[in-house]
Amino acid sequence: MEAFAYAAPRTVAEAVELLVGANGSARVLAGGTDLIPQLQEGRRRASLVVDVKRIPDLCVLDWNPEEGLTIGAAVPCAQVAAFPRVQQHYPALHTACTLIGSVMVQNRASLGGNLCNAAPSADSVPPLIVHAAEAVITGPGGTRRVPVESVCTGPGQTCLAPGELLVRLHLPVPPPHTASAYLRFTPRNEMDIAVAGVAAAVTLDPAEGTCAHVRVALGAVAPTPVRAIAAEEYLAGKPLTDEHLRRAAQLAVEAAKPISDVRGSAEYRRHLVTVLTFRTLRAVRDRLAGGPAARS
């Protein structure tokens, strides 16, 4: 690791000042599970590392029935997963938080870090997208709110300008009759990176038994996590029959633009999207029915 300075500011304003002062050469440290190996292996460089875990705003974890869930950008996954409202209202996110790395990694890795590292395979991002999460970003010019699906702009790249800091994530209260799920595929059962991942959230129209609202998001199959719009549109207004799920799974592939790499070929990834989309939607259906896959 090349030498760098270290700062642990106590406020968002202080952190932003440090980031601005470093002129783009500072790196934000939350859990460090991506940043530290990247610095060690020379894949990223930093003149200054800004540890944001001592800023109270970034360590908030709160839920209320009006605004929903607020997750500080530095809150570790294990803490998110242990928060009862998360398992109850945001099961797709809960699952992701128990899948990232190992227990040891989950005790450090934050959702803010997972999002800002902007790996296409980031497990928490498709769930955040289907939960309609927004990112609250503060910079020298003030604070803005950005839908999570617009945060990642490419592998390792985000919409954050130099000097900007991701402060927290907001997840709205899901409407009644909503369930979600996240499934990923990895060669090993743990300690692995998604070859493909699919999150889905469905709100049922209880009178009709059809989908009032659907979100499907894919991970590891495009330069950024993406929504499978064609699958969403197809399912809208339809009941969750196996036949419809299968068709939606086929349509989900339209959103996938995978590459071939050491973890899998583009072709295999596209195939996994269909398998996982079907299985994820089936898990959502089971949860809506209060079936075996229901969590709460």
Partner: peptide, 11 residues
């Protein structure tokens, strides 16, 4: 439990 290789000593 954490991986101490992924923690900066200053933290």
């Amino acid at each position: 439990p954490v991986n101490s290789c992924l923690v900066l000593a200053v933290e």
